[in-house]
Write a protein that binds this DNA or RNA. Structure first.
Length: 455
DNA sequence: CTAGGGCTATCC
DNA sequence: GGATAGCCCTAG
């Protein structure tokens, strides 16, 4: 799986309620970038949420908050008050819970405050309040009155709540997952298409010159744009660039927010250009179809005028153009043709109505009396060819066959002695040993010659 | 790199 | 036209 796609998926999943073991399994399976800060932050937030899911805090949260602070520092962002408050609350909570047990309390103070927090003098996650707590908590190790003071004061600490506040703030800073932004953008695009069509339908009633064809073209433009957006998002993001247009992900090197993510003058220009290119490649079949219909109807009128008394079998078919623009034979004629249909050909014979590779819709093929004369006519379509685009760029291997050179007696004798010395099959070794004698030969030549000598 | 099948030019 | 020598291609 593409590393970006797996990242998007993981980012999205991280916003969902998730068991830790599932997350760990996903991280183990998905290919992930090592240097994507937003993903790391999302992972940390998920881990913190997981830690507080049982209604209490753990020392692990301290580590996660420290990691988060490191990421903030990398981005030049200062640790927030919410982060500092959460860190302080968790540290205090994880310590004072052992106040009744002297040994455990001593170990907790040593582990959390001496070994962890004391080493973080200048780290942003540490606040002035934390240092005040440190003094009181250490004092409580030696004097009971400080112990009581810590007990009373710590009752006001709501560690889980403080962590939740931080989590919400962190989520907001990280922003929505890329896939969510993408879906929302596409939905807006859909709404825009619908709104556009509604508007066009209203215009139709007022403006009779606006044809169905034009409306379809407009609709196609909007849909085309949507597809381009999807393609650019899914295929162009590794480099982040498609046709010179950069599609930024939210929160990552983005100069614009999610709202104007996909609507910049450059993207619009690129999409228009792509649309024009597609139109240039795909010929609109409608005008040609209408010409064909007109031709067939005029033929029908002429035939009717020239052969008014002809019987049903020889009568030229009547054609009608249905509401879809499809030219059809008159129902009566179809009925007639069924009665006079030729015997069904063998299954192995070519079926004239089957067009697997090449559509045979040329008007030249619609000669009278042909098997298609009384059948349904379809719109002319672009002719498909069997030419593979790969063939166009296929290099024809040009190899000049070497002129056959007869083996001299010296060469034959050398080959024999070589085989005697090194054994059959060591053609390269023999060739290298007597390279000056086997001029213009190859090890394969030696092999071929030996085959010839021993045959 | 080697083995083996196939192709082609040359010889008779 | 068949036989053969020399060369080429490709799978393993």
């Amino acid at each position: 799986m593409d590393i970006d796609i797996s990242r998007w998926i993981l980012e999205f999943i991280l916003r969902q309620p998730l068991q830790d073991y599932i997350l760990d399994a996903l991280i183990g399976v998905l290919p992930l970038p090592n240097d994507h800060v937003r993903l790391k932050k999302a992972l940390i937030v998920q881990k913190i949420q997981s830690e507080i899911s049982n209604g209490s805090v753990s020392e692990k949260i301290l580590k996660f908050l420290e990691l988060m602070e490191e990421l903030y520092t990398q981005e030049g962002i200062e640790a927030s008050e919410a982060m500092q408050a959460a860190y302080c609350a968790v540290a205090v909570d994880c310590t004072v819970r052992f106040l009744g047990e002297k040994v455990k309390y001593f170990e907790a103070v040593k582990r959390i405050w001496k070994q962890r927090i004391n080493k973080m003098e200048n780290v942003g996650v540490v606040s002035k309040e934390l240092w005040e707590w440190r003094d009181e908590i250490e004092a409580a190790l030696w004097e009971d009155r400080f112990c009581d003071n810590v007990k009373i004061r710590s009752k006001s600490i709501a560690a889980v709540e403080a962590v939740k506040v931080f989590v919400e703030e962190a989520k907001e800073r990280i922003g929505p997952p890329f896939l969510q932004v993408l879906v929302e953008t596409l939905r807006r695009d859909d709404d825009a298409v619908k709104a556009g069509l509604d508007w066009q339908n209203k215009q139709v009633s007022q403006d009779l010159t606006c044809s169905n064809h034009d409306r379809e073209a407009n609709k196609g433009d909007a849909l085309l744009r949507r597809k381009h957006i999807a393609v650019q998002h899914t295929r162009g993001t590794t480099a982040g660039i498609c046709r010179g247009v950069k599609i930024a992900e939210p929160g990552v090197e983005a100069s614009c927010g999610p709202d104007d993510l996909l609507s910049t003058p450059k993207t619009d220009e690129a999409l228009k250009l792509s649309s024009l290119e597609l139109r240039a490649v795909v010929k609109d079949p409608l005008p040609e179809a209408l010409d064909l219909a007109e031709t067939l109807m005029s033929l029908d009128r002429n035939n009717s005028a020239q052969q008014p008394a002809e019987n049903d079998n020889g009568r030229a078919p009547n054609f009608v153009v249905d509401s879809n623009g499809v030219v059809r034979a008159n129902e009566d004629d179809q009925h007639c043709c069924h009665h006079n249909a030729a015997p069904k050909p063998s299954l192995m014979a070519r079926n004239n109505t089957a067009h697997t590779f090449e559509w045979n819709d040329s008007i030249d093929d619609l000669s009278e009396g042909s098997p298609r004369s009384g059948r349904r006519f379809t719109l002319p379509s672009p002719r498909r060819t069997k030419v593979s685009p790969l063939k166009k760029y296929e290099f024809k291997k040009v190899t000049t066959r070497r002129k056959a050179k007869r083996w001299s007696t010296l060469e034959e004798d050398t080959l024999r002695s070589g085989v005697q010395k090194y054994g059959v099959g060591n053609w390269k070794l023999i060739f290298d040993t007597y390279r000056e004698i086997f001029e213009d030969r190859t090890p394969v030549d030696l092999k071929d010659k030996w085959r010839n000598l021993t045959s």
